[in-house]
Amino acid sequence: MLELDQVCLSYQSRRQSFDHGSHHVLNRVSLQVYEGETLGIIGRNGVGKTTMLRLMAGILAPTSGSVRQHPGKSSALLTIGLGFRPDLSGRDNAMLAAMLQGATARQARSYLEEIKAFSELGDSFEERVKTYSAGMLARLGFTTALMTHVDVLLIDEVLSVGDTRFREKAQKAMIERITGDQTVVFVSHMEGQVRDICSRAVCIDAGSIVADGEPEAVLKTYRDLC
């Protein structure tokens, strides 16, 4: 479905740090994502998890190596918080998010009441996003992300924030979504979620894959690294 072959990603840092200003994020990463599986990616902060999802979504191109996607298959990166415009209302942000994901203005408008109801934001849906708490942002982020319909869902931490009750509701909605043919790549810090949701997991450290296989065995490697 999706294949990363010897992928490296580095960029020039403006400050002359790291390797003479060159910052290596991923180093010769090879990974295959199979149709219908739910793959969990775990690793400490800053090891390249989000970058890997961005490569899979086609947002970034590898410095070397290749990212191959099955022809005709679509993928989308779902992430929270980042990307919301703080001076716009929740409604406007949801509308914009839907249109950016390819919906027409009419389709986007038809999603809005559903988003308002699921996110349980009530009147705050009409307020500017800069007045939102982290939990409210998480609700809006997850709910706008949930309506995307693509072959490969790339999920970046969308289930990691918010209060316990909403997190459980979100996790339940996500599990309903991923049962069936949906292929999912899922980044999380929460071991329980990786264990419950994923059929396979990989652990990344220092830009390379250090473990790949059954979630329980991979989680053990992750715990040893922490």
Partner: peptide, 21 residues
């Protein structure tokens, strides 16, 4: 057409947000 509608929607939302400030 969708791309133009999106740019236009972004513009109108920004104008509304700016005016409300």
């Amino acid at each position: 057409v969708q791309y133009l509608r999106l740019a236009d929607t972004m513009a109108r939302m920004s104008l509304r947000a700016e005016a409300s400030r």
